[in-house]
Amino acid sequence: MNTRRAFLQNVTRSAIGIPLLSLQSAPIISSLTSCAEVADGPVLRVAIMGLGSYGARVAEAMKDCKRAKLVGLISGTPSKVTEWQQKWNIPAANCYNYENFDNIKNNPNIDAVYIITPNALHHPQTLRVAKAGKHVICEKPMAINAKEGQEMVDACKAAGVKLLIGYRLHFEPNTVEIIRMRKEGELGKLLYFQGQSGFRIGNPNQWRLDPKLAGGGAMMDIGIYSINAARYMTGEEPIWVTAQEVKTDPQKFKPGVDETITFQLGFPSGIIGSCLSTYNMNNLDRFFINGEKGFADLQPASGYGPIKGRTHKGELALPHPMHQTLQMDGMAELIFEGKQPIVPVDGAEGVKDMKVIDAIFAAVKSGGKVPIKIA
Rank of each mutant, 00 (worst) to 15 (best):
T242H: 10
L32K: 07
Q85S: 15
E184Q: 08
D210N: 05
N100Y: 04
F361V: 12
N10G: 15
L190V: 07
S34H: 15
T3E: 15
L44A: 09
M62S: 13
G347T: 10
D111L: 05
T242F: 02
F7C: 07
C65S: 14
A301I: 10
L164G: 00
V176P: 02
L32D: 14
K252S: 03
P42W: 09
Q299V: 05
N228V: 05
P124L: 01
L276C: 02
L44I: 04
A317S: 15
Y98D: 04
V356N: 08
G133C: 04
W84Y: 13
A59L: 10
H135Y: 01
P319Y: 12
L127P: 03
K66T: 06
D64C: 10
G223R: 00
I16K: 08
K252W: 03
A348W: 03
G256C: 14
Q194C: 10
I144S: 02
P371A: 14
N283D: 07
G309S: 07
K339G: 03
P341Y: 06
N107R: 06
L121P: 07
S22V: 13
A296P: 13
V241G: 05
L318V: 13
G330N: 07
D346N: 11
G133M: 06
Q251I: 13
P141R: 01
L284V: 02
S277H: 00
R128K: 08
T12K: 01
D64R: 15
Q85Y: 04
M328L: 14
S302C: 01
I48R: 03
N283A: 11
R200K: 12
V241S: 08
D297N: 09
E60A: 15
A59N: 09
F101I: 00
E148H: 11
M220R: 15
S366M: 14
P173N: 03
